[in-house]
């Protein structure tokens, strides 16, 4: 039956567009515009209606940046494919022993329907919090927030190894490094790269999917600033109820 239909269509004579009346053309274009308009309008409406919900996601401390540069990272988490090149680069660059890690990738199974889930990868690293619980807990100020960059660093020689900072960190970002005889953690590659004028962090540089955007949150021209200050974009931090005020933000494209 369909074969016959196809043959019939092929057998029709091509009338060409030059013979279509202008009224018909206009009607057709109008119809197209209406469809597009409805579609675009709906899209706009849906964006407008999302604004409020998205605005509410921006942490309340955003827009107050005490450090210059205020180092920060935005993770476009839905772009992550778990290739682990960031972990590998971090390990090599910062001499992280096999028993420890400074960054890793968690696998989320987000419920997307009855008995169904969607996989999403979530890279994690030190959040370099504005109110770091680890810094408050350390008895000897071995771990401290750098007054210039806001990076949470460790002064190895002062570490007594009480592990209070490990217990204090809501994000599981610290481990005891046997070789250093001190707590080790992500320092945004300060020692290995930033202090030597190299930019960005090893993990951000290694990521082939552009998940990790690193930069100065106090600089309006930086990518991180623009991403975090985009009111049409959902931005969140991990475990906000801890009150630690992380400088690592998450978003999806």
């Amino acid at each position: 039956m369909f074969k016959g239909f196809a043959d019939w269509v092929k057998s029709l004579k091509n009338e060409g567009v030059e013979h279509i009346a202008s009224e018909e053309r206009r009607a057709f274009l109008k119809l197209g515009l209406v469809i597009t308009g409805v579609y675009a309008g709906g899209k706009l409406l849906s964006v407008v209606s999302r604004v409020r919900e998205v605005y509410a996601d921006i942490p309340e401390y955003v827009d107050k940046y005490p450090y210059k540069p205020h180092y920060s990272m935005v993770l476009r988490t839905d772009r992550c494919i778990d290739c682990q090149l960031c972990m590998e680069a971090c390990r090599k660059t910062n001499h992280v022993p096999p028993y420890g890690w400074r960054t890793r990738i968690l696998e989320q199974h987000l419920p997307s329907g009855e008995g169904q889930w969607t996989r999403r990868f979530m890279p994690i690293l030190c959040n370099h919090c504005n109110e770091p619980p680890c810094v408050r807990a350390c008895p000897t100020r071995a771990t401290y927030k750098d007054p210039e960059t806001g990076i949470v660093k460790v002064n190895v020689k002062k570490c007594i190894g009480c592990k209070t900072c490990m217990a204090a960190c809501p994000y599981d970002m610290r481990y005891f490094n046997e070789e250093k005889r001190a707590i080790d953690k992500c320092d945004f590659c300060w020692e290995s790269r930033l202090s030597k004028g190299k930019f960005p962090t090893a993990c951000a540089k290694a990521c082939p999917a552009g998940v990790r955007i690193f930069g100065d949150l106090a600089d309006p021209n930086s990518r991180v600033y623009q991403l975090v200050h985009d009111p049409y974009r959902a931005i969140w931090v991990l475990r906000p109820s801890m009150g630690a005020r992380p400088n690592v933000f998450y978003t999806i494209n």
């Binding site: 968690l106 696998e107 989320q108 199974h109 987000l110 419920p111 889930w117 996989r119 979530m122 809501p170 994000y171 599981d172 991990l238 475990r239």
Partner: peptide
Amino acid sequence: HYAGMHIY
């Protein structure tokens, strides 16, 4: 630490 976040 990441309880309740659907971590596999």
